[in-house]
Amino acid sequence: MRLASHPLWLVGFRPFFTLACLAGVVLPVAWALVFAGWLPAPDSRYTSVQWHAHEMFFGFGWAVLGGFLLTSTKNWVNIRGYHGPALMLLAAAWTIERWAMAFGGGWPDWLFVPAAGLFLGTIAALLAWTLIRHRATDSYRDNLLFIVMLPAFLVAKFQLLAGDFAAGHGMALALFRLAFLVMLERTLTQFMKAAFQVAILRNARLDMAIKLLGLVLVGEFALPPALTAAIALALAALLGIRFFFWQPRLAFTRIDIGIMYVGYLAIAGQLLVEALGHIADFVWVGSVSVHLFSFGAMGCVIPAMIVRIARGHTGRKVVFDAADRAVLYVMLAALAVRVLLPQLLPGAYLLWIALAAAGWALTFGTLAWRYIPMLMRPRIDGREH
């Protein structure tokens, strides 16, 4: 089929980073307009806040994570990877899910549930099958975590669809947090060696303890609050200890690497805020725990990864030019606007929401303008994929 051979469908990151950039422009702005009362709430089965939370994790977030895993898993097990019609099906399912979540409030269950679950069910099954089938040749033995996490994402999704939104949302955040911890552990080791010729601390017991504690927190909805707080504090402490052995002073001399360290610190900070929420009657303005993760980890790490993967996997040299660096600074500003300023000036909360959404949209709009054309064209080094 001629369409299936288009460069967009050669590797998973191409269609899904395209969708992620577009979602990164549309979803936050739509939410800010809904929150301000300038747009009607989506015709959804969920409240507008729940719709926003779902879409940022399962819409935007899974477009990024799906593109990353579809690309990485083929490299981890050394196979061709899903392409052509398989990617077209996944992209269509992702689009149908966005429509169902925004406009399917009156749909019958027999239509809404498959439409809202087809994308995640299909991509999780395909990725798990790749990792299980090629387990013997997998270059990362701890990819067993992804074999566990992929069906766990389906459990989180089922909880959301079944009406237990708090449990499903908390589980989704914990799963994304664990996925980011695994990704940062692997990539920062490589980036620091390539950029500064230094080896950051990699201790098998410490690394595994961090990942296992992160995995336990996936079941937070079933744990006593005191135990959740203790585990979150322990994980934050381990992350802090490891951070000081990861050469942060060097990393922060380069924005393209330093911003990933910001994401790492945001995860630790989110764990501390979450733990505090379980043990003290402390009120933050504007869901600080969630937004420390969404803006601090996802918002800071994802643009840098899109630039690296889009450049490297299209045959280009991985160099951050002035425009690439600028969008990273914009996202850092958006993080401060969304998390810090509401604590200082809560009376201007609507303004902070609008500015943060504008910063997010500007970041991903710029990435879309610069990188979607690359994703639509063949590699420049002559390789097929």
Rank of each mutant, 00 (worst) to 15 (best):
S44I: 10
L22F: 11
I255Q: 04
W51S: 03
L271I: 05
G24D: 05
D321G: 15
Y46Q: 05
T122K: 06
T363Q: 01
P15C: 03
M56I: 13
L69S: 08
E185G: 11
E97V: 12
A152R: 00
A115I: 04
L120A: 14
L188W: 00
L70A: 05
A336F: 10
L22N: 10
A162M: 02
L217F: 03
F60R: 09
A232W: 00
L69I: 11
S289D: 12
R202L: 03
Y82V: 07
A20Y: 00
F252C: 13
L292H: 01
L212Y: 01
A136P: 10
F221L: 14
A93S: 06
F58T: 14
M192D: 06
R254G: 07
W129M: 11
L120N: 08
M298Q: 06
L215V: 12
R2W: 03
W129F: 14
W31R: 04
W284T: 13
V198K: 05
A275M: 05
T95S: 15
A152N: 00
A356F: 01
K74T: 13
A348G: 13
A53I: 07
V198T: 06
L367A: 02
H385Y: 07
V337D: 05
I380C: 13
G258K: 01
P42H: 01
S72L: 09
K317T: 15
M208I: 14
V290P: 15
L65G: 12
F112D: 08
F180Q: 08
V148M: 11
A53P: 08
A357V: 08
A304H: 02
H134D: 13
G66Q: 03
R80L: 10
L223G: 08
R98L: 10
H313F: 04
F180M: 15
R242T: 14
L332V: 12
F252W: 08
L292W: 01
L272M: 07
L345M: 07
M88F: 02
N143H: 09
H291V: 12
S44V: 11
P248S: 01
L144H: 12
W9E: 03
V307G: 03
F191M: 07
A368L: 06
L127R: 05
A368M: 14
A36M: 02
F221A: 13
F146I: 09
I241H: 13
G163L: 00
V26K: 03
R141M: 11
V49D: 15
Y46C: 11
D164W: 00
V327P: 11
L120G: 11
P7Y: 00
H83V: 01
W99A: 15
R316C: 09
W94Y: 12
L39D: 02
A304L: 03
L233E: 07
